[in-house]
């Protein structure tokens, strides 16, 4: 059995071969097996922890976009969560930002046809992100 298969793909690419070679060098005790399983699980979990905040933030923005009566809430939530994700995942901040911005059009498309849900056109949310003086000019359009 290739124990490295228990680990995430990127980990396997970096250490997989030598890890399996190391394990083949001597018989594995029950303690060794447990140690590998626990650390493989932990490595997989550590990959998830960077994805979870983004997924959670996406859900929050989408929910705000659909259910909040004022578009500013969705816009504010979007900006705030973008900042938070940038702090949490500094290396992948741009991926998180793109994903978060997708929450508004996707949630709008999905819920647009539900009559009981208040929904403002997407451009108003975009206007809410612009400073007040400028946004007055745009909202008059």
């Amino acid at each position: 059995m290739k124990w490295s298969k228990l680990y995430p793909t990127d980990w396997q690419r970096e250490f997989g071969q030598e890890f399996d070679d190391l394990l083949a060098q001597r018989p594995m005790s029950m303690r060794d097996r447990w140690d590998v399983v626990v650390h493989a699980f932990e490595a997989r979990l550590s990959r998830l922890t960077t994805a979870w905040p983004t997924l959670l933030a996406w859900t929050v923005v989408a929910t705000l976009n659909v259910f909040a009566k004022e578009d500013q809430w969705a816009a504010g939530g979007l900006v705030l969560l973008c900042c938070l994700l940038t702090t949490l995942t500094p290396r992948d901040w741009w991926k998180s930002a793109i994903l978060l911005f997708s929450a508004i059009p996707i949630s709008s498309l999905y819920f647009y046809q539900l009559p009981h849900i208040h929904h403002e056109p997407l451009y108003k949310t975009a206007v809410a992100l612009i400073p007040p003086r400028l946004s007055d000019q745009f909202s008059g359009c």
Binding site: F19, D21, L22, L23, R31, H39
Partner: peptide, 23 residues
């Protein structure tokens, strides 16, 4: 990796599990 494991075991008296070592 394997040499590190043996070295730690023989010279320092600690047995590092393979998962712990690569972690």
């Amino acid at each position: 990796g394997y040499a590190i494991m043996l070295n730690v075991e023989e010279e320092m008296g600690f047995k590092l599990g393979p998962g712990t070592l690569y972690g």
